[in-house]
Computed example of a mutant assay.
Amino acid sequence: MAANMYRVGDYVYFENSSSNPYLIRRIEELNKTATGNVEAKVVCFYRRRDISNTLIMLADKHAKEIEEESETTVEADLTDKQKHQLKHRELFLSRQYESLPATHIRGKCSVALLNETESVLSYLDKEDTFFYSLVYDPSVKTLLADKGEIRVGPRYQADIPEMLLEGESDEREQSKLEVKVWDPDSPLTDRQIDQFLVVARAVGTFARALDCSSSVRQPSLHMSAAAASRDITLFHAMDTLYRHSYDLSSAISVLVPLGGPVLCRDEMEEWSASEASLFEEALEKYGKDFNDIRQDFLPWKSLTSIIEYYYMWKTTDRYVQQQQTKSQPNIHQQWQTWCCEWSCGDHIPATESSLRASL
């Protein structure tokens, strides 16, 4: 495999002038033109020299705020040389795209979102490594924090109290700090608790048999039993035990009140097949931008419901299958990669179909 092979997603140097520093771009697409040349559609990154002094002052102010909240190496600890190098390693992401000839690529580099939990020296210790924390809009000349900003520091995390000394009592009012939901020193044995959980699952299965909507979603006994064995049922059962002071007879009577057996359902069971399909389509388009998913695809769902469903969906076979599909070689992307190799002087198959046949 050639050392000068470039793929979609690579950060690369582009030469546009012999007197200026290389441009830094991220490859989004590699396309072969009608003339046989390869063009790269790229995302633009800007250096400090490319933006106005006013915006540089804003960037420096933002960097100072990060330093104040960070417990890692601050700029005051750096030498003048390191400060100078750091300014040359800072980039500004943009949402701007442009197309450039692949023959102007001059090598790879690495660009990362500034990690506030690491020392800035980590970006100086590696060659061809850059960082960014702000997004530059060249059309309106503004700088904004990137959506992926990592928020650390006292403004976002709780302060950890001092550890109590041996024998020292905690004077804080515990009821204001946490809610107790389980007592490990209960009078019941583990076997008795397990038996109660089996009863709760059985009640859940029977409740689904009586519920018309559940009969449609889980038409078989096995599916109903599987749904009744989900965590939501077990959480309800254990909470019921705790609230009734681990009195089994009292807790069982609560599982089957006068109105009929209690039916506990989580988001995985509440969503219909069409809603699940819409969610997967939205996730493919927007990623984990749940606000956009809700706005454009599932406006009748709450944001909490969508997020809860996402984390449950990640535990399903459906998610595993999608991940396996994504990990398989992408023929078209392979073709684009070979095209870029060819633009740098290497041989490629005559057609995309010939590449497909060779894999």
Rank of each mutant, 00 (worst) to 15 (best):
M1C: 07
M5W: 04
M5C: 06
Y11R: 05
N16I: 08
N20A: 10
I24F: 07
R25T: 02
R26W: 06
E28G: 11
E28L: 14
E29M: 08
L30D: 01
L30I: 11
L30Q: 04
V42N: 05
C44V: 14
N53S: 01
N53P: 00
T54P: 00
L55Y: 03
L58W: 15
D60K: 15
E65N: 04
E65Y: 02
I66T: 09
E69T: 08
A76T: 03
D77F: 15
H88R: 09
L91K: 15
S94L: 02
A112I: 02
E118A: 07
L124R: 00
D125H: 03
F131P: 00
Y132D: 00
S133Q: 05
V135G: 04
V135C: 12
Y136W: 06
Y136T: 02
D146F: 10
K147Q: 01
G148Y: 08
R155D: 11
I160R: 15
L164P: 14
L165H: 10
G167A: 02
S169K: 05
S169Q: 05
E171T: 08
R172S: 06
L177K: 12
E178M: 12
T189R: 14
D190R: 08
D190W: 08
I193R: 03
V199E: 07
A202I: 00
A209W: 07
S214V: 03
Q218F: 13
H222D: 04
R230G: 13
I232P: 00
T233A: 06
T233F: 07
D239S: 13
L241W: 05
V256A: 05
G259Q: 08
G259A: 06
C264L: 01
R265W: 09
R265Q: 14
E267C: 12
W271T: 00
S277G: 13
E281D: 07
E284S: 13
F290Q: 02
I293Q: 00
S302P: 05
T304Y: 06
S305G: 08
E308S: 13
Q322W: 11
S327M: 15
Q328Y: 04
Q334N: 10
Q334W: 11
T337I: 07
C340M: 03
W342A: 04
S343A: 12
G345L: 13
H347E: 13
P349D: 10
A350M: 04
S353P: 00
